[in-house]
Structure formats: structure tokens, C-alpha cells
Design a protein around this nucleic acid. Sequence first.
DNA 1: CGTGAAACCTCCGCGGA
DNA 2: TCCGCGGAGGTTTCACG
Lengths: 146, 146
Amino acid sequence: MTTLDGLDERILAILRDDGRASFAVVGERVGLSASAVKRRVDRLREAGVITGFAALVDPEALGWTTEAYVELWCAPSTTPAQVLAVAARHPQVVSAATISGEADALVHVRATSVHDFERVLERIGADPSVVRTKSAIVLSRGVQRS
Amino acid sequence: MTTLDGLDERILAILRDDGRASFAVVGERVGLSASAVKRRVDRLREAGVITGFAALVDPEALGWTTEAYVELWCAPSTTPAQVLAVAARHPQVVSAATISGEADALVHVRATSVHDFERVLERIGADPSVVRTKSAIVLSRGVQRS
DNA sequence: CGTGAAACCTCCGCGGA
DNA sequence: TCCGCGGAGGTTTCACG
């Protein structure tokens, strides 16, 4: 783990809030010149702290109106990498993780409709390494931080 | 839902991948001038399709090494807004949603340690509207798309 | 939508603490 | 090592056609 000083943390906070803020503006807010900010941001990218910059898009605005979480139970001797690969095959899968507890993995899905979701669920469940699925459709969303 | 043409979609795809790409570079790739790209991006922000721009930060690099999902069961006559508000109070909560199925809500948590996570879990469980919690710690992460 | 111009930003090399 | 400065070249922004 890379160690950050207070200036780095303030720069990160500003850029997480506005990824297009100019180095000059960031510098003004933290008390550095634009060059110094650029050097720190370059260093943070190099160190892997900043993994990139992105436009944040409202999924609903693109028609991805159905959201769900799917628990996966796997066949014995299925490796974590295998089950994560099954999920990764579908573009509707937002994230996948192996977990502790009863199920073996939890998959976060965004689909264009309940019907679209059903198709993904079916295809995930059809994989030989998947024994059972249990899904929960999102009814309403609260927090949604970075 | 706002309707986007093919140009808008290509611009969005580029900016989701590189939020700092200049309008000139985006324009070159989609066959528009920088001004035309800017006007479309301004319109997409105005319409709420683009909700902002952000630096993407690796949570592990900031010391948030523990990740978990917590299912919440609530007392009868608890409103969705109430349960989501309980989760939102903690900075470790990344996202929260009410869901269909057995549990009433699913909360995604990132903490600095298992001990830190335990404290959050304890405080969420202590809320009078929360009857029971069931948590699953993330063992390994696969996909992680926008 | 493109063009053009002014203001602004990025990027990099240099010299100082 | 980390800073600020300065300047060349690229970018943003806007009125205009």
C-alpha cells in the first residue's frame, strides 16, 4: 500500500468529485502550482492509486432499468476463478465476487428488462459449474458512492 | 429516457473509458469538430445522462481492504426510505438497495479491516428498524465494470 | 454543424530550497 | 526530492455564419 500525504488525499478527493478539474484549479484549492499537482497525479496513476478517469453515466438513461443480485452455488471443486469467469461472460454483469457464507458467489447484474435479466440468469444457471442460483431484484436504490 | 443517436453513444463510450479525453480527440474518433462534441456532452450532462466525471481510485490503495455484502431484515412497517437512510449514515457503505426475496435490503460495505466492518455491522444492527442482518465477506473479486 | 480567436490548460525543462 | 516558473503547443469556450 502506497503512502499518501494530506495533499495527495485532498487532490484525490477533488478529482473523485470532478475528474475534469484542471490542475490549476486543483492547485488553487490545495495550495500548489499546476505543475506540482500534475506531478502528484502522474505519480498517483503510476502507483496504481488512480486507475483512470471516467464519465459517470446514469444506467437508467441508457435503458438499463432492471437491476438484480444473484447468489451462485457451485459444484464441488469449482475454483473461484472458474465461477467468476462464468459471470464475466455476460455484458449485463456489473460485478462478481466469491463470498463467505452459504452461497459461493454474488453477482451484480444490470439488464434492460426483467426479460433480459431472465435470459442472463438462465445462461448463468446453465453452466455445468453452477448448481443453483437465488436472485433478488432491486426495488429501489439508496446510496451509490464511487 | 432520453434518446441518443449513434454519435452520442460513441462519445459516451469513449468518455466512459477515458473521462479526460479532449473534445478534439473524441471528435477525431467520431468524425465531429471539438465544438460539436462539446455541445453534445453539455447536452448529455444537462439531460442527466452523464452525471459527472470522476477519477477512479483503487480502494485497496487507500487501505479499504475489507469488502462485504449485508442483507437486512426490517421491522414491519419500515419504509424503504427509512432502511436506506440507516445504511447511508455510514461512510463505509458503498451502496444500498431494497430488494425482493427474503431479506428487505442489501448493503455493500467497504471497510479498512474486518474489525472496522464489525463496528459498522454492529451499528447498523443496533438500529430499531433493523431486526436481523446476515453478512457475506468478499473473498475474491472478478469483474468490476463501470 | 464548422470556423476562428481569446483565454485557459498541459506538459516539460530548468533552477532553487 | 519536491517545489515554482516560464514558454511552446494543445484545449476550451463562445459568437458567428
